[in-house]
Amino acid sequence: MNIFRLAGDMTHLISVLVLLLKIYATKSCSGISLKTQELYAMVFLARYLDLFSDFISLYNTVMKLVFIGSSLAIVWCMRYHRVVRRSYDRELDTFRYWILVGACFTLALVLHEKFSFQEVFWAFSIYLEAVAILPQLVLLQRSGNVDNLTGQYVFFLGAYRAFYILNWIYRYLTEPRFTRWISCVSGLVQTALYADFFYYYFISWKNNAKLQLPA
């Protein structure tokens, strides 16, 4: 494992912790898209089907369990927690995400590394992760004001993607047979989706002002 991959995994972990902290400390999930969280839960469940069949390292196994567990816990809190669910911005979170799920699954049936149950679901999870942030970005755009923890959550998620791209460049240069087009192309698409958000995040950070997205 190289430093970029580790930095990517750690920023991913931090983003999840920031989100859990926000929900736990403020007992509120305002500004958070339940649809994006449900998509992430789907992403991790579909991707880590190999959890019990292929052992890569203790690190991988633990991280997989953490990502599955935390995404399910967040979805559960937003849907069923007596207090938290009241702050959910239901009327702003109307992205028709089943279209994304359908499109990604269709794409996975066509474009995969091998036509097997695990591989198709793996490709599906990669495609779905690339677009899973869309309901969240739309929600932020609609509400205009972004609270600090929500802004940091999206920032760390974007940083995770950026580090993974550096990781792939590093692996491409150092590993003789490193080619994985599905991950890399999807990863580039995913990171590009954050570009707009990053632009406004850095402007607000530079001006020491509250993050606001243009309508």
């Binding site: 995994d9 292929d54 890569i56 991988n60 990502f67 590394e113 793996w122 990781n167």
Partner: peptide
């Protein structure tokens, strides 16, 4: 081993 190494990322 090669096949397993395919999905060694998270």
């Amino acid at each position: 081993p090669l096949e397993q190494a395919m999905h060694d990322e998270l």
